[in-house]
Simulated scan of single mutants.
Amino acid sequence: MLTIHTGTNHDAVAVEGDRIAAVADVDALRAAYPGARVREWPGELRPGVGWDSTLPQAPSPRERVHALLLRGVTAVAPGSLSDDPGLGPAAARVGLPVGSPTPLHADVRADFAVFAPDGSCLATVLGGRLVHRRK
C-alpha cells in the first residue's frame, strides 16, 4: 500500500514497500496518488540521523537499538555495534542499516524521521516501516 508521509514543513514522501516512490510537496503527492493513505505528522519530516559511537546503555541489545530509534537514527557506523554480539542481530531485526543515513530521494530505501520543534523524534521509519512513534 502506498503511503504519503508529510510534516509541518510541507515536505512529503510517497512510500511504496521499502522504497521512496516520490518526494514533493504534500499537495503534489496527494494529486499524484489520490488513493494513498496519508500520515500527517506534527513535525518536520527529514532524513534520519546517523550514529557513529557506542550505543546507549540499556538492559538488552534490543532496548539499546530501540534507544536509537527514539532519537531518529536511521543508520549506524560499522563500529557502533561491536561492543555486544547481540547488537548486530537486534539492529538487523528492526531493519537498522549499517552505513550513512539515506537522503530523501525517489528510488532509495525509505528511511527517514519526523522531528518536533524541540528536536525530539516523533517518528522513525526504516525500510518503509514505522518502527518508532512517540505517543
Rank of each mutant, 00 (worst) to 15 (best):
R134Y: 07
D52N: 14
S82N: 13
V65W: 02
D111R: 12
V73R: 06
S80H: 08
W41I: 01
G119Q: 06
A67L: 12
F115S: 00
G128P: 06
V38H: 00
A22E: 11
L45I: 09
M1H: 09
A28H: 12
L130T: 11
A22S: 13
S80K: 12
D18M: 10
L45C: 08
A91I: 02
D84C: 03
R64G: 07
S60P: 06
P89H: 01
E44C: 11
A22I: 13
L55W: 10
L130Y: 09
P85Q: 10
L81I: 14
A75V: 11
A67K: 14
R109W: 06
V49M: 12
R93V: 04
Q57T: 07
K135N: 09
E16A: 15
W41N: 02
M1L: 12
D52W: 03
G35M: 09
H66I: 05
C121Q: 08
P85E: 08
P97R: 01
H5Q: 02
P101F: 04
R71W: 03
G79L: 09
E44S: 06
N9C: 14
E44A: 13
L2C: 01
H5V: 00
A58I: 14
A77Y: 07
L29E: 00
G86P: 03
A90D: 03
L104W: 13
A58Q: 15
G17I: 00
S60T: 15
D118Y: 10
V26Y: 12
R30S: 08
W41P: 02
A14C: 09
T3V: 15
A67C: 07
A77H: 11
G35T: 15
R134N: 06
L87V: 12
P89T: 00
A14I: 03
G43Q: 05
A28W: 12
R19V: 06
P34D: 04
P78S: 11
R46I: 03
G127E: 04
D18E: 13
D25L: 14
G7D: 01
T6F: 12
D83K: 14
A123E: 09
D84H: 09
T54N: 10
R109H: 08
H105T: 15
A22V: 06
A92N: 14
A58W: 15
L126F: 04
P117F: 00
R109T: 11
A123C: 05
L96M: 04
L81G: 13
V94Y: 04
L96C: 03
R62S: 10
G119L: 04
P42T: 04
P34I: 07
G86F: 04
P85A: 09
L69N: 02
S120C: 05
D18W: 09
A116Y: 09
A116G: 05
P101A: 05
L96Y: 05
L69K: 01
V23K: 01
T6C: 14
P59M: 07
A32N: 00
G79Q: 15
V98L: 02
D107V: 12
T124H: 00
L68F: 01
R93M: 07
A67V: 06
E63L: 14
A14W: 15
S100Q: 05
A90M: 01
G35A: 12
T8N: 09
E40Y: 07
R109V: 11
M1G: 10
P61M: 03
A31Y: 04
P61C: 04
H5C: 01
F115V: 03
R93S: 12
L2Q: 02
